[in-house]
Design a protein around this nucleic acid. Sequence first.
DNA 1: TTTAATTCCTAGTGGTTTAATCGATTACAT
DNA 2: ATGTAATCGATTAAACCACTAGGAATTAAA
Lengths: 152, 152
Amino acid sequence: MLRFSTRSRYGLRAMIELALNYSPTQPTPLVRVAESQDISEGYLEQLMTFLRKGGLVRSVRGPQGGYLLTRVPSKITVGEVIRCLEGPISPTGCVSEDNPEICQRSSACITKVLWERVREAIASVLDSTTLEDLCKDADKLRQIQEADNYSI
Amino acid sequence: MLRFSTRSRYGLRAMIELALNYSPTQPTPLVRVAESQDISEGYLEQLMTFLRKGGLVRSVRGPQGGYLLTRVPSKITVGEVIRCLEGPISPTGCVSEDNPEICQRSSACITKVLWERVREAIASVLDSTTLEDLCKDADKLRQIQEADNYSI
DNA sequence: TTTAATTCCTAGTGGTTTAATCGATTACAT
DNA sequence: ATGTAATCGATTAAACCACTAGGAATTAAA
């Protein structure tokens, strides 16, 4: 019921991990991502395929290989990541961002404007947040946690 | 991805139908709702159980029976209807409106604020729309359609 | 050149959810 | 009484989700 699947949640966390380790040249192997984010490596592999085909990451095979962001974290929005993993934002079939289904009953269309507003509300949050934003949050979070450790 | 199930979509349409026929005393039988909204009556029955238990409709058995809204359409929000049918709004388990799951990894919490913002965005659209609002939209829609028919 | 690390690809699987369907029962107006 | 209509519970078929498994292809390092 209106949930993001693990596809989005794991995939985004993987992207955050790549953003935290960001380097334009040195790839991060998937084992590392899987471990530090506690996600099944095999499953993550599949998710990376979506992200690669969507052009958000590129891969390097062989030893010292792994995945790299194709752009700096500030130029990648959460909206792009989610769409890449799950397709167009579409709380109902008739208001998909892509090619919405055409509904017959005029009465059904009463609700259409509502669903469109929901779609826009979701998209606006996702599109206004970048990976860099989330990394900054992560930094803040870590600082707070360290402060806590000292005080204990 | 992040879809409303038919539970929400059908259920809301049923509520709109009851709102369009609104009378504080005369119930609308489910057959009527099912027909005019083109929804399987048996399935609709189950959805009405949720709405009844949530106190949004009451039922009258026997001939001349059916379902009634317990409040005027202007006092029922879409948010109430959806929550009644699908439970608390919760794009991920950790940011459910009700009793959010506690996530272990601090890194997972990086995304928590994001999901909370999505939840709030959805809730704000749903909670700011009433059944009356949707009925007015329906009226407008019908007028436009009638105008179209004349011009043809 | 061999070995090890890594991505790439495809198929299968068990569990959950969805969207119903069916049958029996209860309540009530006429 | 009779027929209408909601109520309740069980069952089901299909779809989807979150993995798992296994091998092929690629490439850097030893």
